[in-house]
């Protein structure tokens, strides 16, 4: 199991999930320069939304048939929360000092997390999530879980869809314009409020997909899973160049692969045998972030933003 191709594949799966969440961060940041700290919780509520749908469906229903419904349920929850957060928490703060929306985001993140903890039945403990099946497929020496196939497929579909949307649709172009310069975009007749809402909605949608994928992958979801995942995803967004949607996905993949490889191989480095393993994976992820920020502050695909006078 510890072969390099296997680790790369593991990293790819993990990274796809980070990338999906990171898209939400990067789109919102690209347009309103806001770190939506609550995005990790939006991801988490998406997973709980999907679980709720599953619990409402009749017992013994085929998971493959239920999956689309779960995705829709999760997406509705996540998108509603994301859009609601924008409308009622962030929008009134536009033009406020830079720290104000950040602190609001932290508050929102805590409130969402605790709301699930307190009011979702049984959420004090980890909740079991339905599984796609336990028998892995084998591709040469690589074992691939079914849920990982779902994850990669979802990531590819989402990315292609998003790229097409941003490139070709009117709204997508308006989005790019707003990201470039909100004021001018507004003068050009673009309803920037609508664009911002759409950015939040897309972020929520992708987070919900990632939430379902997380549940399938790990078999359990918890009320506080959003914090770590959000932190990683934001790291991925910064790694890839914040504001760039392709960068977010690339950053996610790089981060996922780096984490998988660090878990497996760091311990083999002489003198560091105690610093490998799952426990240290997050540490290496952040070390990677700091190194990237030192070497290439704008991220892998980011463009250097000229200092504004």
């Amino acid at each position: 199991m510890h072969t390099l191709p296997q680790q790369l594949a593991n990293g790819l799966f993990l990274g796809s999930m980070y990338g999906l969440i990171a898209i939400g961060y990067t789109m919102v940041y690209g347009i309103v320069q806001l770190i939506n700290f609550a995005h990790g919780e939006i991801f988490m509520t998406g997973a709980f939304g999907a679980l709720t749908v599953w619990n409402c469906l009749p017992d013994g229903m085929n998971i493959w048939a239920a999956l689309p419904l779960m995705l829709i349920g999760g997406a509705i929850v996540s998108v509603l929360i994301a859009v609601g957060a924008e409308r009622f928490a962030y929008r009134p703060l536009r033009g406020a000092p830079r720290l104000a929306p950040l602190i609001t985001a932290i508050g929102l993140s805590l409130a969402l997390q605790q709301a699930i903890f307190v009011w979702y039945p049984g959420a004090d403990n980890a909740k079991d999530f339905p599984q796609l099946g336990t028998h892995p497929y084998h591709l040469g020496s690589i074992a691939i879980q079914r849920n990982d196939i779902f994850l990669v497929a979802a990531a590819v579909v989402c990315m292609v869809g998003l790229a097409a949307f941003v490139r070709t649709s009117r709204t997508g172009r308006a989005m790019q314009a707003t990201a470039q310069d909100p004021d001018t975009a507004q003068l050009m007749g673009i309803d920037t409020n609508r664009i911002i809402v759409i950015a939040f909605a897309i972020g929520g949608l992708f987070a919900a997909v990632a939430g379902v994928a997380f549940g399938l992958k790990y078999g359990q979801i918890t009320y506080n899973m959003g914090f770590q995942a959000g932190l990683k995803a934001f790291t991925a967004a910064v790694l890839g160049g914040i504001g760039n949607i392709y960068g977010a996905m690339l950053g996610g993949l790089v981060l996922g692969i780096a984490e998988a490889c660090a878990t497996a191989y760091i311990a083999n480095i002489p003198g560091m045998h105690q610093l490998g393993g799952q426990g240290w994976a997050n540490v290496w992820a952040f070390v990677l972030l700091i190194v990237v920020l030192l070497v290439r502050p704008q991220g892998l695909l980011g463009e250097r933003v000229a200092d504004r006078a």
């Binding site: 310069d181 004021d183 001018t184 003068l187 000229a306 504004r308 006078a309």
Partner: peptide, 10 residues
């Protein structure tokens, strides 16, 4: 100019 002065319009 826009790059240089994002707030020019205001």
């Amino acid at each position: 100019e826009t790059v240089a002065e994002p707030e020019e319009g205001r």
